[in-house]
């Protein structure tokens, strides 16, 4: 039975062929193929991880942007409110200051009016005194001994007139 009795020549050549095949493939092909396949598997794994991570980051960034936007809106509203408040304050202040200023002006005016009034009163009094003296001099030329006594008398009378008024 030829099939069951291994032929030496065939065994020999099979051995040689297999060893050659093994040496060639083990040296130049298999390690490279296995390494490449593993590298690619790693690359794909990394790619998937990276994609997931970047998606998470993107989601995160969106949330962050939204929160920033909300914050900015809040700030804007605050600023607007502050501005309105400040405006009102300024208007209020300006109004107060204007009132004070006006009061000052009117007070000054009153003071000057008062002064002018006093001045004019003095003037009038003096002139009235002069006129009265002249009149009295003319009326009572003989009775009046000294100038001084005459003036005191007139003043006394004038004071009486003033207090009556």
């Amino acid at each position: 039975m030829e099939l069951f009795t291994p032929e030496f020549g065939l065994v020999f050549w099979m051995f040689v062929a297999f060893l050659c095949l093994y040496c060639i493939l083990a040296k130049w092909a298999w390690p490279f193929i296995i390494r490449s396949m593993e590298e690619r598997a790693d690359l794909i794994d990394k790619g998937v991880a990276y994609a997931q991570e970047s998606k998470a980051q993107l989601d995160n960034a969106k949330a962050q942007a939204e929160s920033l936007l909300a914050e900015a809106r809040q700030q804007q509203a605050d600023i607007l409110r502050d501005a309105a408040k400040m405006r009102n304050q300024i208007i209020e202040d300006a109004r107060g200051e204007a009132v004070v200023e006006a009061k000052k002006v009117s007070d000054a005016a009153l003071v000057s009016i008062e002064q002018a009034k006093k001045e004019s009163e003095k003037q009038i009094r003096r002139e009235v005194g002069e006129i009265a003296l002249q009149i009295a001099e003319k009326v009572l030329r003989k009775n009046v001994s000294s100038d001084q006594a005459q003036r005191e008398l007139v003043d006394k009378y004038l004071n009486e007139v003033e207090t009556k008024n």
Binding site: G9, L10, W13, L25, A29
Partner: peptide
């Protein structure tokens, strides 16, 4: 040690695998 049909076929197969 003849290159018989089987030996030749082994070589063909080895070359194919390579």
């Amino acid at each position: 040690l003849s290159i018989t049909k089987n030996v030749a076929a082994i070589v063909v197969c080895a070359l194919l695998v390579i």
